[in-house]
Amino acid sequence: MAKERILVTGAGGIAGVNFVRALRASAQGYYIAGAEYNKYYIELPDLDSRHRSPRHDSKEFVETISGIAKKERVDFIHPQPSSEALVLTAAKKELPAPVFLPGADVMELGQDKLLTQERLTKASVPVAETRTVTTMDGVETSFKELGRPVWVRARHGAGGRFSLLCQKPSEAREWISLWVDRGTPLDEFILQAYLPGRNIAWDSIWKDGKLVTSYCRERIEYPFKHISPSGITGTPSVARTVHDAKVNKASEEAVLAVSQRPHGAFSVDVKEDAEGRPCVTEVDSGKFHTTMPLWGYVGVKHLRLPWWSNLADLYVRLGLGEAPPKDVVRSDLFPAGYYMIRNMDSGVILWREDGWKERVL
């Protein structure tokens, strides 16, 4: 039987490297081609062939990816960065191979945190109370309504973009003004009530409107947090798997609020309030969180779970038209209490509080 041929775009980013690594752990023996804008990072993943691609906002992006897919005779295309996924889902009819993505309207909604919050509120999904920034004078009023401290953040982007926990209105105004003076529109900022509880990520795969599998993990520490004003730098350096029925329920409801027929990968960010109630802060569709494929790699290589715990492998097989496995678990895919500890040039360790540990990378 011939190997399925897969094209991964954005293959040189951390998430792309993790996705390729997870596919290498599959018994399917995939042929993996990679495309990447950065001429250095394309050297990082374990690929069968490497290709440079233009930025996602280039007029040549779709044509270039289609050309690579035709040249490599691929059976499936996985765009890892959300920016590339949005472009390719909008152009899916032009592609020579299938993608496993939500529609462009769903992805555009997920990439706007303000619109996402409004949609979730209408669906009675718990969220952080949010205010828009239309004038600097309005910041004072927002603080009175939200209480202190207030979380300032950008409507778009990842990695804690423009985020800062502010104790007083003058601090928020100065922070926002700094970026407005550098060309950021004022309405790019939103203010949210601070949620002091756990920071949780819920990752899932859906097909034709039905949840296939999911798991959640608590983010405990971020790399280089000491050089970030907010302490948030995107992907965590320490995270642990958790089982929480309330988080599962809120996250499923959030996905169904933003998409009537979820299809593909959906990742939900959750922050707990002072009473421990999970509140949804983001719903990302069409992309894998950075460590989502790495947890799948851990599942099959170190936890000795069934093949479908390898989320990248499961996702590709579903995207190629296979039906969901009959024995796949719908939630809590990984056992609770496992810590993933990782840092630049330090490898990856799987650890438990009873002292057990195993090196992953």
Rank of each mutant, 00 (worst) to 15 (best):
M1N: 12
V8M: 10
F19Q: 07
R21Q: 14
L23E: 13
G29D: 02
Y30L: 08
Y31W: 07
A33R: 01
A33D: 05
K39L: 12
S49K: 02
P54Y: 07
H56L: 10
S66K: 01
P81Y: 06
S82R: 15
A90F: 03
A91C: 10
P96R: 07
L109Y: 03
D112E: 05
K113Q: 14
K113D: 03
K113G: 02
L114K: 06
E118R: 11
L120V: 02
L120I: 01
S124R: 15
S124I: 07
S124P: 05
E140Q: 11
S142K: 05
E145M: 12
R153H: 05
H156L: 13
A158H: 14
F162D: 04
Q167L: 08
P185H: 12
L186Y: 12
F189H: 10
Q192I: 07
P196S: 05
I200E: 08
I205C: 04
K207A: 08
K210F: 08
V212M: 14
S214L: 01
S214E: 00
F224L: 14
H226R: 00
I232Y: 15
T235S: 14
S237E: 04
V238Q: 12
K246P: 06
S251E: 01
E253S: 12
E253T: 13
L256F: 14
V258W: 15
S259F: 12
H263A: 13
K271D: 06
D273N: 10
T281E: 02
E282L: 15
S285F: 09
T290P: 00
Y297A: 05
L303Q: 02
L303N: 01
L303E: 01
L305W: 08
W308C: 07
V316D: 06
R317Y: 08
L320R: 04
E322V: 03
P324N: 03
D327C: 06
S331H: 13
S331C: 08
D332N: 07
L350C: 04
G355E: 11
R359M: 13
V360Y: 01
